[in-house]
Each structure stands twice: as C-alpha cells, then as structure tokens.
Amino acid sequence: METSDASLGDEWFQSFRALVSECVSLIDTTLHQLYFKAKLDPLAGWKFDEKALGPRHGRRLTDKFNWVYKITGKFLHADTEKKNFVAIKDLRNHLQHFDPPSFCYTLEDAATWLNQVIDCGRLNWAIRQCAGSPLSVPLIELLLQRAVQFVPEHPAAMRVPQPDNVGYLSTKPQAVEGGDV
C-alpha cells in the first residue's frame, strides 16, 4: 500500500477491510436467520411462503429486506440505515474484488464509513425489533460506539467540501468507467 503517510500501514487497511466485510455478513446472516426461524420455528402471526419470499441465493441482498415484512408483518423503518448499508456493501464489493483495480480515500471518507458501520448495527437492531429478537452484547457494543468526527490537522483553516474528484469518489467503479459519480 502506497500512501503519503505510511504510518497507518497495511494492518489498519486489512482490519478496516475485514470490518466492512463483517458488516455486510452481519446483515445477510440476520436476514437468513429470520428466514429459517420463519420456516422452521415461526412465532405466532408470522407467515412463511417460500415462493413469495423468493430464492435465498442468486439475488440482491437488498431485496431480502422485503423478507422482514413478508414474514413478520412489520415494516422495517430504517431508510437511512439501509442507504448507509448499501454504501458499505458497495465499498465491501470494491475492497474484495478491486474492480476497478484502484482505491483511494481521504480521512473524511474513512470517518463517513466508520459512522456508516454504526448504522449497520442500527439496521441489524431494526430487523431484530421487527422479529421480536433481543439485542446481543456485541450488538449493544456496536450501537454504543461514538460517532467519528473528522478533525483536520489545522481546524482553523477554511475548508471546502470534498469534491467528487477527490478521495474515494475518484476511484469508485462509476468514476473509473466514466459514468456519473
């Protein structure tokens, strides 16, 4: 990894990459647990219609959010959390496949992602609430994380908002392919 400040090193990047991957797995696993609970040991009032739920594999992960209502009859009120989860999922895909084979980020980007990780915990909690499932200690620990705030080296200096051609936005697949950023 080449950086202008090598003090972060490869270990930080590998840990971050694992964190992002685990966030996606957390949500996917929770949705599959709901699916199997409904299929094998449903709670009163739950519905399980395998045809209506659709296939478990070979489909978009975000389509599985519909399982929550179809099974529990409760709406998943977590629009912000779902939006931030999609951003983390897209980042995970990029970090796992490196397609395009470039990656760049600013510390502002990293702060945003770390806050989106907390929203993945909130999304998990919202799914669990719909299912009537209690919180776990690790989920509570994630939910209690403080929000990350980027603090520039020179806080008094005037800063302009980060443009689309700087940081991660400059290396997202859409930017490299010449599409909209």
Results as ranks from 00 to 15, higher is better:
Gly45Thr: 08
Tyr69Val: 04
Asp5Ser: 15
Thr112Arg: 15
Leu31Glu: 01
Cys120Gln: 08
Ala157Pro: 10
Ile88Arg: 05
Arg56Val: 04
Thr3Pro: 15
Ala78Cys: 07
Glu11Tyr: 07
Asp99Glu: 15
Lys82Met: 09
Lys83Phe: 12
Cys23Thr: 05
Pro55Ser: 12
Leu31Trp: 03
Thr171Arg: 09
Asp119Met: 06
Arg60Met: 07
Ser15Glu: 11
Ser15Met: 05
Phe98Tyr: 15
Gly45Ser: 09
Val166Trp: 05
Trp67Ser: 04
Pro100Asn: 04
Leu135Asp: 00
Leu123Asp: 06
Ile71His: 01
Arg17Asn: 08
Ala131Tyr: 00
Ala52Phe: 04
Glu141Leu: 00
His94Ala: 07
Tyr168Glu: 12
Pro101Val: 01
Arg92Cys: 09
Ala52Met: 02
Asn84Gln: 14
Leu143Cys: 06
Asp28Trp: 06
Pro100Val: 00
Val181Met: 08
Met158Tyr: 13
Arg17His: 10
Glu11Met: 06
Leu107Ile: 05
Gly132Val: 01
Val117Asn: 04
His94Gly: 07
Ala38Met: 00
Asp99Arg: 11
Val181Asn: 07
Glu153Cys: 11
Tyr105Thr: 12
His97Glu: 04
Leu107Lys: 09
Phe36His: 13
Asp28Lys: 09
Lys37Ala: 04
Leu169Met: 13
Arg128Asn: 06
Phe98Leu: 15
Gln129Val: 14
Phe85Leu: 06
Ser170Thr: 10
Thr106Ala: 04
Pro55Thr: 04
Val160Ile: 08
Thr106Ile: 03
Lys70Phe: 02
Leu8Asp: 10
Ser133Pro: 05
Glu22Ile: 10
Ile118Ser: 02
His154Trp: 12
Arg56Glu: 11
Asn93Asp: 15
Asp28Ser: 14
Glu177Thr: 10
Gly54Arg: 03
Val86Gln: 13
Leu143Gly: 04
Ala38Glu: 01
Thr62Phe: 05
His77Glu: 14
Glu177Asn: 13
Ile27Leu: 08
Ser7Trp: 10
Ser7Ala: 09
Val137Ser: 03
Lys37Met: 08
Arg59Gly: 10
Val166Arg: 11
Ile71Ala: 01
Ile27Arg: 03
Leu143Ser: 02
Thr72Ser: 02
Ile88Trp: 00
Thr62Val: 14
Lys83Asn: 15
Phe13Gln: 07
Lys74Ala: 06
Gly9Thr: 03
Arg59Cys: 09
Lys74His: 13
Pro163Leu: 02
Ala111Pro: 09
Leu53Asn: 03
Phe48Ala: 00
